Computed example of a mutant assay.
Amino acid sequence: MSLISKQVPVIQSDAEALSVARELAAHFKRESTVRDRERRLPFDELELFSHTGLWGITVPKAYGGAGVSNVTLAKVVSLISAADSSLGQIPQNHFYALEVLRVNGSETQKQRLYTEVLNGQRFGNALAELGTKTAHDRTTHLAKAEHGYRINGRKFYATGALYAQRIPTSVVDDHGVQHLAFVRSDSDGLNVIDDWSGFGQRTTGSGSVVFDNVFVASDDVIPFQSAFERPTPVGPLAQILHAAIDTGIARAAFEDALNFVRHKTRPWIDATTDIASEDPLTLKSFGQLSVRLHAAEALLERSGEFLDIAQTNTTASTVAAASIAVAEARAISTEVALSAASTLFELAGSQATLAEYGLDRHWRNARVHTLHDPVRWKYHAVGNYYLNSENPPLRGTI
């Protein structure tokens, strides 16, 4: 695939989005091992990615986009993640910011920012911070200034900021209220630092962003905290994207295990077969793994259906049901990603650990990405919902 022109096509339907994603995933897969091994930052790949129109697929139809279903969105992210999970993760907060814009932005803000996205602009993120009391506390400050605001603070885990034209940033005003500022990446005083050293998801660029008296126009600041003070689909939308990434990692590890065992693995001496793929215990392990992977993919699709309902008819009950459905998908996608990435070596054998194959990247990527929020609390929320009819918290971590 190549960029023939700077004109970004506007994808028109769910079917078109999936078709484009499948073609792009096949292209991304070819050098995914090399990008991981060399930590080759995917600037060119992201230019191609955003110029396919896929970054605009959640823009509502009323604003010129395809407004695809969350079933489709999750499948697109899963397809790209199966090819290269770093590339699958980079647009996660882009889609998250677009959902915050959808539920909390003004009409003028929607018209302007949606148009930017349809023209190929990428949004990153500067949300999380290190050194705070909890992972959800924020200290980056938004101060009133002439014609807008000034931002001071430091962020980390800023996935996508390194590659973005705008960096949606969580900030706290003088009253302790959180807002989301869509900061231009070329703003004076803004410094994006490539200091991400995680052993997985190595090319996401999830490092630091420093704000030194950075100006942001008033029209680029959107209410944020209020999205979690009333029922909105913002939280489950964020979480379904994480589930899609992990499901993609699991699919990639599973398919690489199949390929390796078919073509390279030698049977164990007690298997009484000359072909590794006929080893009865290997068959049993692949059977167990495939059932869990297909269950994860089915729960991911199901959670997208619940989220579609919550976006169309937003109530406390529909948002809670969507949050629980997504939590179920998150729980199983976490477990199957880790299991598939580890079982790969058990079934493929010692040869699979050789560096030239790069198969360790699946486990490293799964282990790093699934630490985003603990799966044990997913099970707690699901159990409390069904046993005690207790709705989950209105935030982005369930």
Rank of each mutant, 00 (worst) to 15 (best):
K264M: 11
Y357S: 10
Q311R: 08
S170I: 11
F43P: 11
K133N: 05
A164D: 01
E356V: 05
D246C: 01
A296N: 04
T58I: 11
L283E: 01
I57S: 06
S78V: 09
P231S: 00
A126L: 06
K144N: 07
I324G: 03
F345N: 09
N391Y: 05
A250N: 07
I90A: 14
N388D: 11
K284T: 03
A128P: 10
T169H: 11
T353S: 07
L354H: 06
V34K: 12
N119S: 09
S389P: 14
A341G: 05
E23K: 12
P280E: 15
F182H: 04
T58R: 06
S226K: 05
L241N: 09
L24P: 03
I90Y: 13
P42H: 06
P374H: 12
F95Q: 06
S50A: 12
E229L: 04
R122F: 11
S218Y: 13
I57C: 04
S290L: 10
L24F: 02
L180N: 00
I275P: 15
T272N: 14
S285V: 06
S333Y: 02
I240Q: 13
A327S: 10
S69F: 00
I332V: 10
K75T: 02
A341Y: 02
S389E: 12
W196T: 11
Y63L: 08
N125H: 12
A298D: 04
A253K: 08
V291K: 13
G248S: 15
L101D: 09
E38Y: 12
L118T: 05
A381E: 14
V103F: 03
A352Q: 13
V76Y: 06
L127P: 15
G160S: 06
I240T: 14
K378G: 09
G349V: 08
S187V: 00
S86H: 08
A143I: 09
K110E: 05
Q225E: 08
N125W: 15
I269F: 14
L387A: 10
F228E: 00
N313K: 06
R122K: 12
T247P: 04
L46N: 08
P267W: 15
V368D: 11
R251C: 04
A355R: 04
A366K: 04
K29G: 05
F123R: 08
V336A: 00
H380K: 14
T58K: 00
S185N: 01
Y385K: 13
D220V: 13
A366T: 01
A243M: 08
L299A: 04
T33Y: 03
S350R: 03
P280A: 15
G65P: 00
E346Y: 14
S226Q: 03
E278M: 11
A145I: 07
F211Q: 10
R102H: 09
Y157K: 07
M1H: 14
A21L: 04
A164H: 03
L98A: 10
K284N: 00
I80C: 01
A295V: 06
L387H: 12
V71D: 08
E47T: 09
T108V: 12
E23H: 14
Y385W: 14
A320K: 07
W377N: 03
S290V: 07
K61W: 14
T33R: 02
A181P: 08
A381V: 12
A298V: 07
F123H: 01
F123N: 05
